[in-house]
């Protein structure tokens, strides 16, 4: 066990190229997830985010089998899935959540079937499922920076439109905005974020990095820009802690990062609850 009070404990891993790369990639992912997560939380898209996390899987597998860049396959699969879900949810008898549940499982089954045809399947599968922040290659880092940066740029440029369609789509339509198109853009950004996050936290836990920091932010503030900032901050903090823990304890990095974010969430929740009780009591007296 390392000595947690020795500065060297924290500096030593940073001398390794793979930790530097991993940490940097994970921080970018945490910031992008914080910003996109704010939209996920205020619009109640947690299930869709979760589903997208699974649904990009067949795309990644197909790209892997065809020797293409997995990111491209993932994004295409993500967009196809969201379009499918929104088309099915137009049917009045089928709730959106039901459509989401069916779509992502079927997409995932497709990915699993395709993967079962390939030999190196099992290892690649578990890599995709739980991710490994310490396996980020230099070219992956570049791709993460470029995609993450573009997502943030698009959100910054179209911020007011994205808020408008999220809060009041009817008004947006009356203003002549193409709501379906802007929604599709938001979902495409979400798919990009998820695909970028695949490598660091893995397929199954992407949604955690989207939802948990932003939910914590929601407890802390009532306005959207600060919510995004809090989410990015909490995500980054969890990432740093998670990377160190997984370096020393040899634990799956995705799991460590997410557990850390959850601890912060519950800490804030309990503190808020306690504060409200305290205020209520001082009023009563």
């Amino acid at each position: 066990m390392p000595n947690w009070f020795d500065l060297e404990t924290y500096l030593e891993p940073l001398r390794l190229g793979l930790v530097q790369r991993g940490l940097l990639a994970a921080l970018i992912v945490a910031i992008v997830c914080g910003v996109m997560g704010a939209f996920v939380v205020v619009r109640g898209l947690a299930f869709l985010g979760d589903a997208l996390g699974h649904a990009v899987f067949p795309g990644v597998v197909i790209a892997y089998l065809l020797n293409l860049n997995p990111l491209i396959g993932g994004v295409i699969a993500g967009i196809v899935t969201t379009v499918g879900i929104s088309l099915v949810a137009r049917q009045r008898q089928i709730r959106e959540s039901t459509a989401i549940g069916i779509f992502y499982t079927v997409a995932f089954a497709l990915g699993a079937l395709l993967l079962s045809r390939s030999r190196s399947a099992s290892r690649a599968l578990s890599e995709l499922l739980i991710g490994n922040v310490l396996a980020v290659r230099p070219q992956d880092l570049w791709l993460t920076m470029i995609i993450g940066g573009s997502v943030l740029l698009v959100v910054a440029l179209l911020y007011k439109e994205l808020v408008l369609i999220s809060f009041d789509p009817a008004l947006a339509a009356a203003h002549g905005r193409n709501v379906a198109l802007l929604d599709a853009l938001l979902f495409a950004l979400l798919a990009l974020t998820i695909v970028v996050a695949l490598q660091t936290v893995g397929n199954v836990m992407v949604v955690a990095l989207l939802v948990v920091p932003a939910a914590t932010g929601r407890l802390l503030t009532r306005s959207l820009p600060p919510l995004m900032a809090w989410a990015a901050l909490i995500g980054s903090l969890s990432t740093i802690v998670g990377v160190y823990v997984s370096y020393y304890a040899n634990i799956a990095s995705g799991g460590a990062i997410v557990l850390c974010a959850c601890t912060i969430f519950f800490g804030v929740l309990v503190a808020k609850e306690a504060r409200q009780r305290w205020i209520a009591r001082s009023f009563a007296q």
Partner: peptide, 25 residues
């Protein structure tokens, strides 16, 4: 806490899954 059931579900399931993954180690 008014964070919505959807978000509460998201937090819980990712948390418990992460717990499972870490414990699996």
């Amino acid at each position: 806490q008014g964070i919505g059931e959807d978000t509460a579900i998201g937090v819980f399931f990712s948390g418990s899954f992460a717990l499972g993954i870490v414990l699996l180690n």
